[in-house]
Computed example of a mutant assay.
Amino acid sequence: MFIKIRNNHYLRSTLMFALITFLAGCEAPLNLEGVEKEMSKAVHRTDQLLGVAVSQDQVVVVGSDGVVLTSPVSELKWQRQQLSNNPNFVDIELCPDTSLIALSMEHQLWISDDQGQHWRSSDIPTQESLTSVTCGPDNSYWATGSFSTLVSSHDKGASWNELSLNEDAAISSVQFFDSRNLIATGEFGLLARSGDGGASWTMFDPIPNEFFPMTSHFSDPSTGWVAGLGGIILYTADGGQSWQSQETPTDSPIYNFYARDGRLFAFGDHGTVLEQQRNSWRKLDTPKIPVYLRDGKLLDDKRLLVSGGWGVLFTVDI
């Protein structure tokens, strides 16, 4: 009996070894050629490209995992770099002095003085989630976030000031009209103005129906647009005292506005790019893709560069 059990154990071991050897011999070599080819590209299909800026003759795109893409404006040939610690960028802005600032989810502002080639970071001392960034006319830095928070730096990120409007709402954007006059919009229809450079703020009647503007743009203190879910875009001609809905050809969420040379564009989900025309919006011809678009900038009077999720980066003929 003892010998039989021992022989069975030996037989099982021999068969198992033979099976493993056979399977190993039959397994095809792992082919990484496709992966390596994808990783060698400047733009990866996994990139979430959330911000675009044009600085002089360079275009700079930032995204998740510390991705920074740069290219000449004249001919798009992308160069890729990934910044240390892989900051997840959510926004980028060009300052009046031609420097670039990029906001990351990790409460950091990244600053470049050479068109996106090199960057330095500044830690923003706040516990609130930050969602957008802008540059003031005096090259001050401003970031907005949860609990109606605005954080600002007037010394190139060496120190920061934090201010809350004491509303349990996220500020989605802040915009300067000049060095003293600003407007902020946010969750639950939040609408606030400052006439002293952002030192103090006055709350206005909220946008009706607790509308959450995911983005806003004002061409002057009286004339503005806000956009959000369902493809809804509202318009005011009296500084936010009243709002009218403008017709849009989409029910997809709208995430961002961009204005230049008297033209106003909007970017949204499902590959949506809109342009404002009088009191309505027209949909521009874009690839039919189920991907969100987050930002865009004019490269010249014929090309609009658009970026978004899953490595989407293309030009639209305008």
Rank of each mutant, 00 (worst) to 15 (best):
A143V: 15
D114V: 04
V59E: 11
S64L: 14
V59T: 14
V90R: 04
W78V: 02
L100W: 01
S104W: 00
Q81I: 05
S104N: 00
D97P: 06
I124D: 02
L100G: 01
P125W: 10
I124V: 15
S121Q: 11
L130Q: 08
S129W: 05
Q82L: 12
L94H: 09
S112P: 14
R120N: 02
L83I: 12
Q82I: 10
G116V: 12
N88R: 11
S74H: 11
Q56I: 14
V61C: 09
V60C: 04
T70F: 11
Q56G: 15
V133T: 06
V62I: 12
V90N: 02
P137L: 15
A143P: 07
Q115I: 01
E128L: 06
L100A: 00
D65N: 12
N86R: 14
L94C: 09
G63T: 04
L94W: 06
P96Q: 12
D113Q: 12
Q117L: 14
I92K: 01
V133S: 02
T126V: 13
Q56K: 15
D114A: 08
S112A: 09
E75Y: 08
S99G: 04
V68I: 10
N139Y: 06
S112Y: 04
S104R: 00
E128A: 13
D97Y: 05
N88E: 12
I92G: 02
N139A: 11
M105T: 11
S132L: 01
C135E: 05
P87V: 03
I92A: 08
E93N: 10
R80F: 07
S99I: 02
D123R: 08
Q115T: 07
P87L: 05
S129C: 00
W78L: 03
S140N: 10
S132K: 11
L100F: 01
V61G: 09
S132E: 11
D57H: 13
L83P: 07
D97T: 03
V60R: 03
Q117V: 15
G66V: 05
D65C: 00
D113Y: 09
E75N: 14
D91L: 04
D123M: 05
S74R: 13
L83D: 08
Y141Q: 10
C135T: 01
G66T: 10
A143R: 04
K77L: 12
S104Y: 00
T126L: 00
I101W: 09
V62T: 11
G116A: 12
Q108M: 09
L69Y: 08
H107G: 00
T131D: 01
D114Q: 09
I111T: 08
L94N: 13
V68N: 00
I124L: 13
V62D: 07
Q79N: 12
V90C: 05
